[in-house]
Structure formats: C-alpha cells, structure tokens
Amino acid sequence: MPVAPDPHPSLSQYAHPERLVTTQWLADNLDTPGLVVVESDEDVLLYDTGHIPGAVKIDWHLDLNDPVTRDYVDGDGFAALMRRAGISRDTTVVIYGDKNNWWAAYALWVFSLFGHPDVRLLNGGRAAWVAEARPMTREVPTPVESDYPVVMRDDSGLRAFKDDVLAHLGKPMIDVRSPGEYSGELLHMPDYPQEGALRGGHIPGAANVPWAKAAADDGRFRDRAELEEIYLDGAGLAPGDDVVAYCRIGERSSHTWFVLTHLLGFAHVRNYDGSWTEWGNAVRVPVVQGNAPGAV
C-alpha cells in the first residue's frame, strides 16, 4: 500500500505534489510501513559517513549502470537491486542525496524507466536534513528481501537516444550544462575534467538553462512561479511541448527532467542520457558554438 502523500502547503503549488516530501513529513514517517528511504549521492562513501536512519544506499556507478555496456541495468538487475533493498512494487520510495538531489533525481528517473509507481524526492535533499540537525546514523540496515517482480525497462517515453534527438531537431530542447560548456569554451563541466568530448558546443536550437537554477539557496526547489519564469519565459518552453533535456552523461538533465515533468507538469519530456559525451564525440552531427541556440 502506498503511503499517503505529504499534504504540506508548500508542495501543493506543483503539478504533481505527490512526487515531493518535506523533511518534517519524512521525519514523521520513518517508521511507516510500506516506506523505504534511499540515499543516492555523487560520493559513494557519503552515505557511510552517516545517513537518515533506516535509509539504504543506491549508487549510480555500482547499482544503476550496467558494468559493461553504456546502459542501465536490465529488468533482472533492477529487480535484484530492489529485492536487496527491501523494496516491493507497491513500496513508497523516498530518495534523497547530496548536491541539490542531483544524483537522487537521476536515481528517481531510472526508477521511472522501470515504472516504479510511487517514487518521491525529499525536497532539499541531504543538505536540508543535515541543516535542520535531524538524526543521522552510521548503522546500515539489513532489509528483509522483497519479492520485487522482473519488470522490463521501458525507455520509450522518458529516454531519448541520439537518433531520437536527430529527429527532434527544431523542437524544444534544454541544455542544462554550464554556460562555458554550452558555448563550447569548455569541453567538460567546471571542476569535472574527466569525461571529455572531442568537440565543444551544443545541439542546434537548444536553450541553455543550467540545472541548478531550479534550486533555491537552501537546496529546495524554487517556487512554481519562479520555475515558470525560468523555463517558460526564459527558455521559451510552452505547456504541452515535447522537450528533450541533456547534459554531459544524463545526470544533471534528469534533475531538469524531474522539474519539467513533476513540478511544471510537462507530459512529454525525455532525458537524452548519451548527452554531450556522445554527441560531442559523434561523427557529423550538427554542433553550434557560442551563446546563441543557433539554427537547425
């Protein structure tokens, strides 16, 4: 049985308020049956330094990516992961993490590829929980193995591949990287030099909205009105648009995918996880350099 949504008034402004929970709600529901808390961070050891009591760790490198092919785990792999984590198909999953929920949103997007019905983000993530001096522990739970079914991953609605993006040229696209990466001055994200590309710039027609603009200073999502100013007025999206978001490997853009889909209510948003590490290395795909989106 899914757990009832957090009724907090700060969430009701969003298109799908049931996709977010507040820190207070989570603190009040840590022992609620049917709820599992998942921490997903950039740093694989951060969870081990202390985490929300009862939370399990899911790591994007080790748990969500296929170790050989550049792809996500398959239905068997995801089911095995869920069983280990004690998550059933009807479990309410609340994910939180470091860096404005960057990797938490990525994990949530992967859960969505498998159609997990009830998966939510903790608004403000790990930083908000820590800032409020809420309890943390180093005790690692030992979940009772669940009976999660093997569900085929469905990439069709939420994921775009390179050919999909080529067919999408001319329609709305959001490049969520830093301005330097977008213009082509930088071949990698500032401070993250290791996943380079041979060419710099962006996909023609893509608007540049760095992902973290969606977060306020305290790590929580901005109000809906502010988000609409950024994505509708600023980036020129219109409700109902078919949108593709991309970044470098698809993690920052899954944060933007969450904002557009669940907070602003866009029904057709796909994350291009090949992103710049594929596009910037691909032969003869169109690239635009400079600060303007450019013509297709």
Partner: peptide
C-alpha cells in the same frame, strides 16, 4: 572537504 569522504579516503 568532509562531504567528499571517498576523496578524503
């Protein structure tokens, strides 16, 4: 930084 335990390790 303390928030980067892998790197600290």
């Amino acid at each position: 930084p303390l928030e980067a335990p892998t790197t600290r390790g």
